[in-house]
Design a protein around this nucleic acid. Structure first.
Lengths: 374, 374
DNA sequence: TAGAGCCTGGACAACGTTGTCAGGCTCGGG
DNA sequence: CCCGAGCCTGACAACGTTGTCCAGGCTCTA
């Protein structure tokens, strides 16, 4: 389906310079992507063309285009006319080169298609827009290499700032960038080995609340299904679960916990195992939205009633029978907070890096119907 | 919350040149955003610095950075060392200026936070990635002016191509861009007054199928709640509804149809009206995912059983009681198809603009439980 | 009426990179 | 031993824009 061998190889985004191995990447084939000399790409008119047509100087065109004062209405009219006629559009690459700022920020997240990141991304975009900046984004697919590749590509484009949802756990590669003035904020998960602004949810507290809720309703055999423990949020939520259980004097059996990739098949198997066996759980706490959805499906196929509390809110969770209680984080607030901090860095209003933790909210649904422990 | 008055005003993204009114935008305040002359922004090292440090020529650095052949291992080592030491990162703005292509494409859609656009956006990104390009995106918020503003900003950055989900209905402003070689594909909705590639779902057919499904189950008084009719998809779906009803010999009462903005309040009111009154509907066909969700909520509060079929699939729709039958479109396929066509335009493999229509799929859920007509 | 000051317009350099081209080096063969 | 071929290397211009600076023409005042 994807045809990566087509003749459109605009540029090599990878920067051989700083790759992991320290070796430079040698292109397998000679790249022939340069325009034929003398042929302007797409033949776009430049300010020079506009100036020539309007019979004015180059700088005068620049003035008109940028709305600078000091141009006679008559002259301006002529310039506007030429612009219109030629379909001129200012080339921001050249502009950026001259001015030093790109008016764009980068957002690197895990997966744009995940409903959790949509609102986050949108929130970042809105803040960027309010500051006159564009948003460039990319998905890391939870792959540290790809994250780095993306981030460096963005830096090469000289984004003014970066909002990163870390996939990897070592971000020292960003040091020169930050030193060079690229504003950087990490969201959802902390950065690794680097001192930078971080905006996260209270994953530990949220999970603790959710599990405590189950305990308060009489549950003692509570399962936990979460993401890979190397992901910080997953580890924190597990910690919340463990502590809540501990606080209630409950000893957690190993078979009650399942951590790993969150694809439906694995989660389904994990849930089934917890629900069968000699010592089945009476309630499950799920570590994120994807897991929750899968477990809801599993439970729907069971006759026995099992209580469920999930991290992250899910649309329509209130309409299920029984309703699903969740620990909700505010994805939009995460994005907004991060982006605002980013622009404050660019302002120079911000001094030391800080860690900001946003509260979660327990949304109780159908709790009255929670099946009791035994 | 948003502080748009901060001192970070990197650049004016709006291009006064081509604004709607034809007047140029005069900045209210004198912009003082230029770097202090002589102070390099962020003090980033350039190839020149690297060259100086490595004791080689400028071009040699360029060669090393781009993996071009013809550099002694020893020389390369020295250059690499200097690069490492200085934290040099190639400036793609300058590169773009020289080469003419940016290796980035733009995506303008309605709202990144809408679950329908997440997968679409991700699909576009994957195709772009396969072709070595980055994705810049922006939300038009269903506002034609904002769409144009965004598109022109992207053109000013010289994106190689554009994927646009139109908010406005006149895209003649894109003519000079397309003529200048910016590959352009419209998705989800057709372009206005311009001949360009379009990738859409079979909105008419899908709606027809969905409504026919209801009719086949004995319903005759079927309501339709959809988006504003100026939105092409909404109009097409309405047409599907009308035709399906007509085909079945059913005369549609005006009170059965409600078109307008899709915020929950309006939709709720529309649904309530259809369900009460002298001639209440026994089934509702909803025009998109947001409407469907709201109507599900309304129906949950009613004792009378009302059948529901919605356009767009919804997560967990299968677990609701009763399950919600939907007309599903493949958002990812829309994005993928559009992006692939875009790169084929850039290849030069593509000739005449075309209109591609992707099929929809009726997903039947809980149909056996559909309450009959009376 | 002359001089000061303002307004308009344009020439020019610089931003950082890449393509062209030419010069210098080494090495092998005559 | 000399010359040409071939390989490395670097000087230079150009990409399109913007900031600086200056020139020329105008108005206004003394």
């Amino acid at each position: 389906m994807l045809d990566a061998t087509s003749s459109y190889k605009p540029m090599d985004l990878r920067i051989p310079v700083a790759d992991r191995t320290g070796h430079r990447t040698v292109p397998e084939t000679t790249r022939r992507t340069d325009r034929i000399p003398g042929t302007r790409y797409g033949n776009r008119p430049t300010m020079k063309d506009v100036a020539a047509r309007a019979g004015v100087g180059l700088k005068t065109v620049s003035r008109v285009v940028n709305g600078e004062p000091g141009v006679t209405p008559e002259t301006e009219r002529r310039v506007q006319e030429a612009i219109e006629a030629l379909g001129f559009r200012r080339n921001d690459s050249a502009r950026v080169l001259r001015k030093g700022r790109t008016a764009s920020i980068g957002l690197v997240l895990e997966d744009l298609a995940d409903p959790f990141y949509g609102p986050l991304s949108r929130a970042v975009e809105e803040v960027a827009r309010a500051h006159g900046a564009l948003l460039i984004n990319g998905s890391s697919a939870e792959d540290a290499d790809r994250e780095q590749e993306l981030v460096l590509a963005l830096c090469a484009r000289r984004v003014d700032g970066l909002v990163v949802i870390p996939a990897g756990d070592d971000h020292r590669y960003l040091e020169p960038e930050i030193k060079a003035g690229v504003a950087t904020v990490f969201v959802d998960r902390p950065a690794g080995h680097i001192d930078a602004d971080v905006v996260v949810s209270d994953n530990y507290g949220g999970a603790h609340d959710g599990v405590s809720h189950l305990i308060a309703h009489g549950h003692r055999r509570i399962g936990f299904i979460g993401d890979m423990p190397r992901i910080h949020t997953a580890a924190e939520r597990l910690r919340g679960y463990r502590t809540a259980m501990e606080d209630a004097g409950i000893t957690v059996a190993d078979s009650w916990m399942s951590l790993g990739v969150t694809d439906p098949e694995r989660v389904r198997r994990a849930a089934e195992e917890m629900l069968s066996g000699p010592d089945p759980v009476t309630a499950i706490f799920t570590g994120n939205n994807r897991v929750t959805v899968t477990v809801i499906r599993v439970l729907a196929g069971h006759t026995r009633r099992v209580a469920l509390v999930g991290f992250d809110d899910i649309e329509l969770a209130d309409l299920l029978q029984p309703g699903v209680t969740v620990v909700a984080q505010d994805a939009a607030a995460l994005g907004r907070t991060a982006a605002e901090r980013l622009f404050r860095q660019l302002d120079g209003t911000l001094l030391a890096p800080e860690r900001i933790e946003l509260p979660t909210r327990l949304i109780t649904r159908g709790s009255g119907e929670l099946p009791p422990a035994d």
